[in-house]
Design a protein around this nucleic acid. Sequence first.
DNA 1: CTTATAACATACTAATTAGTATGTTTATGC
DNA 2: GCATAAACATACTAATTAGTATGTTATAAG
Lengths: 195, 195
Amino acid sequence: MSKAAETRQMILQRSFELIYRQGYQATSIDNILATTQVTKGAFFYHFKSKDDMGLAMINEILYPGMYASLVTPLLKAGNPVNEIYQMMRTVLLKVPFLQAKYGCPAINMIDEMAPLNDDFRKALVRLTQQWQNAIAQCLEQGKETGEVRGNVNTENAACFIVAGYGGIRNMGKALGSDCYRTYLKELENYLMLLE
Amino acid sequence: MSKAAETRQMILQRSFELIYRQGYQATSIDNILATTQVTKGAFFYHFKSKDDMGLAMINEILYPGMYASLVTPLLKAGNPVNEIYQMMRTVLLKVPFLQAKYGCPAINMIDEMAPLNDDFRKALVRLTQQWQNAIAQCLEQGKETGEVRGNVNTENAACFIVAGYGGIRNMGKALGSDCYRTYLKELENYLMLLE
DNA sequence: CTTATAACATACTAATTAGTATGTTTATGC
DNA sequence: GCATAAACATACTAATTAGTATGTTATAAG
């Protein structure tokens, strides 16, 4: 990776971390410059506006991160219902970067920016749909092996599961990670309904 | 209500509407003044800071609104599982003020402000807990009448249901109200698990 | 080595922000 | 009706915002 590409990547990564904790609009360019030690000239050389940077952050940081932690685990060949539960448990309780207080970076972005910026919205829809499709496909495969009941509407179930995740991330911001555990217990009951 | 009290109430109401659509931090005091026709002197006579107004808005507008639309319906004497479903259906699809694009005012506030302001966080916890308790109590009553299975952990179920609501409100911001209907279908399946 | 461009650096601007200082008006108890 | 405080109005400030104008330095091809 060229030095310039490294600079660009570093801006995106540090911006991601700041935005995760502070929100997109509350994170100023000056704030990003201060923590990256990059100058304003360099920033606007790599990105033509703050929103241009934000969009790049979604596509180049958020999306790959989501894919690695939420989609990849579902590609394993185990019992689908169990894989979904473990994926949820891991992402809620085992990823040190993600703190209950700050929620989920993707959910945060949807909440703050989807109504305000249609480019952001579309990029975030792509991200969400990718996960939802992976869950639905995982359940669909389970139907073939008989591990998921045939009358389960996998699309609806995937929507319901993704909604639950977004909601418990929101709740965790107010109540802390204890509610994650409560949620996971009841998720287990719901998932049993599918098999 | 005295004229002064009316002014105060009007500021809170219009601020609530602006904040619902734009977010708390993105809604400037000048913006509120422009839409209320109130002057800066009047604003700072009634509230000692923007955050003071925000907290009053949570307690005096958000909280009563939440209580009326989410708690009151659960006090009816019908089948608890059905009451919960109808409450959810009504608040998602039948309240004209709430638009999918802008989500839920309370969920929005939690998402944006819970990590940033502990007074806000506590006020919002009170609001959330009130609803969650009402759902749990509703289910608990159902146990007595035999309409809810005895082995249901009503606390866990209430947490799961509230999380689902918050999440589908988030998802609706990106995908529109279609996903509300998908969610409601699967919620029905989940709720059947409880009876 | 030269030269051109990529990659960065510095200093500025105009708009917006929450909040204050200092007024004037309006209502209300006596 | 009058005094007095409540209720509001206007003009300001200092800080912060995204973005620009105009530089300088590093890099890599010829």
